[in-house]
Design a protein around this nucleic acid. Sequence first.
RNA 1: GCGGGGGUGCCGGAGUGGUCAAACGGGCUAGGUUGAGGGCCUAGUGGCUUAGUGCCUGCGCGUGUUCGAGUCACGUCCCCCGCACCA
Length: 916
Amino acid sequence: MIEIEKRWQERWHKSKIFEAEPEGKKYFVTFPYPYVNCPPHIGHTYSAVRVDMVARFKRMQGYNSLFPQGWHMTGEPLMGAAKRIAAKDKEQFKIFKVAGVPDSVIPSFSDPETMARYFIGEWEKQFHKAGFAIDWRRTFFTTSLNPCYSAFVRWQFLRLRGMGLIGKGLHPVVYCPSCDSPTGSHDRLQGENATILKYTVIKFRCGEMIVPAATLRPETTYGVTNMWVNPDTEYVKARLGGETWLLSEDAFTKLKDQDYALARAGKVKGAKLVGNVCTNPVNGDEAPILPASFVKPENGTGIVMSVPSHAPYDHAALVDLKKRLDYIHLIDTPNFPQHPAVGVCEEMGIRSQDDPKLEKATNTVYRNEFHKGVMNERCGKFAGRRVSGTKEEIMNYFGNRDWAAVLYDTSEPVVCRCKTPNHVKMIRNQWFIKYSDRKWKSRALRCLSKMKIYPEEARQWFENSINNMIDKACARKSGLGTPLPWDNNWIVEPLSDSTIYMAYYIIAKYINAGLVGENNLTDEFFDHVLLDREVDVERTGLPKSMLDRIKKEFDYFYPVDLRGSGKDLVPHHLCFFIYNHVALFPEDKWPRAISVNGWVRNEGQKMSKSLGNFLPLSDVLEKFGADAFRVSILDTAEGLDDPDFRSENAMAFLRKVKRILAATDSVKDMKSYKKRTMDRWLLAMVQERIRYTTEFLEQLMNRQALQHAFHGMLGDITKYLSKIDKPDRKTMEYAMETFAKLLVPFAPHLAEEIHSKFHKTLVHNAKWPKVVKRYVDESVVVGENYLDNVAKDINHITKIIGKKPKSVKIVVASGWKYKLVSAVKSHLDRGTPFNAVMKEIMKDMRFRRKETAGVVQSLLKDPSKVPEHLLSANQEFALLNDLVFRAKVMVEHEEKSKEPKARNAMPGKPAIVVVT
RNA sequence: GCGGGGGUGCCGGAGUGGUCAAACGGGCUAGGUUGAGGGCCUAGUGGCUUAGUGCCUGCGCGUGUUCGAGUCACGUCCCCCGCACCA
């Protein structure tokens, strides 16, 4: 099969069938350019297969399909890996080795560009082998290493800024003090899933000192009974303006990086603080400082306020100290005791403050109080309010009165790959794209509402994502990329330089052909070509005819008709894609459809770094070929579900290919006959397959489409060949040719191979099959089904008897039963309530027989006994006379039959008597 | 926590109020088949029963709506994914 595939790929390449030029009606599909820091694995390519499937389908439907492909290298990972190679990091060597990079090549990866180019080569090679319908003249890669693309990004950002959609401000990030840069989740040794939490720091007073306590539950400040410090921790006294703050060493560093102008002014051991009394700023209550081991200096400020009524840790610590304080009850929650923390601790059997169950206890209390709790009269102006929805207000209220400050911290400890513990840092002067802009947002939503989303279930997700969109930091200081046009210290961040690049594919063709160069790509060029603005095109240095040509091509191919990707890109990239299009382009250039899909699994397992089970695309293509890979994954899922690649499925496909090709070859030896029932049956089935395949493909339901186009067609053809001694050449030719066409979107190489046995042309250039009305024949399909069922019943009986039958007698039901069943059926089809059907039937004079009630009752009890398509007694009789069985078959009518069993006969279910 | 998607056979999964719960694929079992490299065909694959058209069980758990529920409602448990500057 692999040789076959190679042959067709060469032929496609030679006939340039995937090179789309502006002509006719178009269909523009894109698959997000992948990040090229490793060779492709099967997970990368499922979306591409789906997009490719659509491109091919549309092409045969008469559209001029364009499927281009570029490569992404903006960001940190490439640079990071290069640095690690330069530093001879063994881990990194191993990663590349496992990915299949030859040992001799790896050291050259200390240069990120070399690495990227190597991997781009790998990707292109594999994509060629996969036979994708890509127009390779339009390929490119990102970052300043490609000045042409950088010019495009620069233009985009100047435009956005010109529209006031770029802003500047403070921004909290997880930060590594040793690397002096933000730590992305992939750069973390620990805490990959950590998020940034906003704490309220309550400023308790203790004489001249501020004793700050960080909390996520500011509402509980009203219930503080005491303060906790860790007696073994050395605390820092820090000057802040006119105040002196008491902080753990970690907290000192954190706050400094969060824009607090702190100055070191002394130290004090936690134990020394015990016994002092603080004042609660919100209500003036006194709170003595007590020691507790659960207080971790690296969390929050290193000082904790104690709310024993609502915080299990605090209660447990007090119990440990054998200290009795008056607990303050603040929040009423249904089904909770007065002091929920006490109740939960007792219920869970928590004995000390070091009990790991406390984490869960805290969670339980918090969850319930947050959602169901109402604050009581102790909570000042917030009395009577629910906890949920009030938190933000409380924080602001406290902040405004200088009772509290803000501290950002990670939800779990984060350690950088350089092994340094990280914390949250406030970045000053961070550049933002203002995705929260209300007007912009509503335009994005309007675009969404006009788009097709495949599958529809994902629409809600898009809508929520856009609704919740906040400003996005769009630049960073390290990594590869395009510099911000107005501030070269910053590089446009990877998700932000990848939002409208589909337009660049049009231009890339001209750049790759050497017709347009870096110097021509001025802002005027893009303004003119992409936005149709009146600008001084002289400055592009290009002849008007060339500009017109490019512009015409852009106007022809744009907008994007379909963008297909994995579901992981919904909340950012795909939304940014919509956002940037609606900001920059007029409405007729807004994208038309997005499709999202699941992630490929490998032999039933999710592929992950930890499992190390990424299956390289090259392995699969080498072992099974492109079609087997495509069919295997397209066959296991659609919509948002995860497909599963299993080699046994790929093998099963290859086995079938053999059979199919053999059947194809056999057609030339067949003779023509007058059409028989089975001929008409096959022709009719093919029409159904065409209809369903087309319908499902239109909805991008690859699995169901494939079921008809491949499994269905194959099953029908197999059945035809097995049931007919002398297959008809014309019928088979038609079936095989149609089969080939229907297979193009799924198994394009196999499709060509089949097609080539009948034609010299490419099947890719054939028209998508349409239903041929004169072949549609419901009755022959129903009849065949009927015979199948009868045959099954006979089999069942002979199996039970356990003897070989000498002959079989089949009795078709009496005529009155047909009338009766037909009447019942029409009642049911009309939706007559079940209990009314019996009455109606019994009223009907035609059915005055003693058996009627029993028959109707059994039909109503199990409506599945009513056949979907009711044949007449004579039709059944005629069909049964054609029944082929390994013993002699006799058919008779119930009216004339002497068999006692004959009375069991029902329409669609004849009585069967097996004679042994 | 918020948001999205789910829980059906040995497995992947069809099935969105009534024609078959398990289509289609894979696996497994049995029988047949000169059958060249991980073959083909046929039948079977919840339980019981029986010369088939029967009965029971069954779609995470519970309750309800209905003549009828995997399918609708309410409650509950569990799983997966995203939550942002990270590809």
